[in-house]
């Protein structure tokens, strides 16, 4: 089970954040976010104050999972891009590698053509960062426990305290 855990470090998190900001600006998007396929939000940039990003992340992953299921039934490996068009806002959802989802929310100040073009460029860079992350956590795992692991001295009391 642990082999699929995702561990994010400061350095890579910064790189991801920078790439998302640059994508948001170059695509004229309002919000850009990354979600793990299991529904966990990894990072988001843009006008997110009024957006419930946690729910958005979970539903985006559910959406990808459902369309992935449809694809398999139809004999496709996966639908790599999803696009939903609204009266005001639109969302473009695509995959980075096999486990990360990239979503770009944009309105009439941008266009689907521009968004797709910019997404394509960013996808390569983001894929590289996630490769680096998994190399790094593989290495950490091979070397044993992480030094500053929050789990080192965890006790039943700590867990109890969450439910007080």
């Amino acid at each position: 089970m642990s082999s699929s855990d995702l561990i994010m470090y400061e350095e890579e998190f910064q790189r991801i954040d920078e790439e998302l900001v640059s994508l948001k600006n170059s695509a004229n998007a309002s919000v850009v976010f990354l979600v793990d396929k299991n529904g966990q939000l990894i990072a988001s940039v843009g006008d997110t104050q009024d957006v419930d990003t946690t729910s958005l992340a979970s539903l985006t992953a559910g959406n990808i999972a459902a369309t992935g299921g449809i694809a398999k039934l139809l004999g496709e490996e996966e639908f790599t891009i999803l696009f939903h068009e609204g009266a005001k806002d639109n969302i473009n959802i695509s995959l980075i590698g096999s486990r990360i989802i990239l979503a770009v929310v944009f309105d009439s100040r941008s266009s689907i053509g521009l968004v797709r073009l910019r997404v394509k460029k960013s996808t390569e860079k983001l894929a590289q960062i996630f490769d680096d992350i998994s190399d790094k956590s593989d290495k950490d795992k091979a070397e044993g426990k992480l030094d500053d692991s929050p789990f080192n001295e965890i006790s039943d009391d700590d867990i109890d305290s969450l439910f007080r």
């Binding site: 089970m1 699929s4 855990d5 995702l6 561990i7 994010m8 470090y9 400061e10 890579e12 998190f13 910064q14 793990d36 299991n38 529904g39 966990q40 990894i42 500053d148 929050p150």
Partner: peptide
């Protein structure tokens, strides 16, 4: 799979 983020100091788990 859990998601441990050392940057934002978060641990996310799915039940």
């Amino acid at each position: 799979m859990s998601f441990i983020n050392y940057s934002s100091k978060e641990i996310n788990c799915k039940i």
